[in-house]
């Protein structure tokens, strides 16, 4: 991707668009210093389905730039990672599940787009929630659910309409990632379906598992035996969720 000048420019454009819409809404925080009401959350989904990997890097950079305006800290690293996944998953998942254009026209494409949005939002929420609980800043149970809801609601409302308006124009102008990368952005064959399965398991399973650990419903014996239990649950959530994070990474590698 980095060898293509247009993809480099599109990465910068995705990042700046994301940041430009994020920054004005920094004044409406949901969790001060961590997250806010974000109408910009539709941008990574829409950009991903149009610009592919450029949107993944763009979402990570865009969130980082947004942090520059207020709230930069060690958590920005996980913010980058979560948003990178948020921009990476949609085009990979859509490519694995459908050969049609990602513009919702019938019930099946609506359902598929909703699943893409929900899964991407969940991976983003799980990654950031896991990271910030690992750092001991905020409980996973508070953060992950807010991010998942915030991302998915905004994206579900705005993405279909944005895609309808923008996708044909992008395709027509030759800036679609498949035109620029000549199909090199997606894995081939059965591996992709395994990827979808592992990714879904890691995301939805990870969200449920993380909530259970974070709320103290599930106690991890290994952490207790090692004497690593803390009030923030940093090690419980940090180590307990590693299998889910590993599934997500493996699923993404196969997609």
């Amino acid at each position: 991707m980095w060898g293509n000048t247009r993809m480099v420019v599109l990465t910068a454009i995705c990042a700046s668009l994301y940041a430009a819409i994020l920054i004005p809404f920094k004044v409406i925080p949901l969790i001060p210093g961590v997250t806010e009401f974000r109408p910009a959350n539709a941008v990574p989904i829409v950009c991903s389905l149009m610009f592919g990997p450029a949107a993944a890097w763009g979402s990570g950079f865009g969130n980082f730039i947004g942090d520059f305006f207020g709230g930069m800290g060690p958590g920005s690293l996980f913010g980058f990672l979560g948003n990178f996944f948020y921009g990476l998953i949609p085009y990979k998942l859509w490519g694995a599940l459908s050969s049609r254009e990602p513009v919702p026209r019938g019930p099946l494409s609506w359902l598929l787009l909703a699943y893409v949005i929900l899964l991407s939002s969940t991976v983003c929420g799980v990654t950031i929630g896991w990271g910030l609980n690992l750092l001991g800043f905020l409980p996973f149970s508070v953060l992950a659910s807010i991010i998942v809801t915030n991302n998915s609601v905004v994206a579900l409302v705005l993405s279909p309409l944005l895609l309808r308006a923008l996708y044909p124009r992008v395709k027509g102008s030759g800036l679609h990632y498949t035109d620029l990368l000549e199909g090199r952005a997606l894995s081939a064959g059965r591996a992709r379906l395994w990827g979808v399965l592992l990714l879904s398991l890691g995301a939805f399973g990870g969200l449920a598992w993380g909530e259970l650990i974070s709320l103290g419903t599930v106690k991890l014996r290994l952490i207790q035996e090692l004497g690593m239990t803390t009030a923030t649950g940093a090690f419980d959530v940090g180590l307990g969720m590693l299998p889910a994070i590993a599934l997500i990474v493996l699923g993404l590698a196969l997609l």
């Binding site: 480099v8 910068a12 454009i13 990042a15 700046s16 940041a19 430009a20 763009g58 950079f61 865009g62």
Partner: peptide, 9 residues
Amino acid sequence: TLSLAFRLV
């Protein structure tokens, strides 16, 4: 790319 993105915001 990062610096270009900063400038475009």
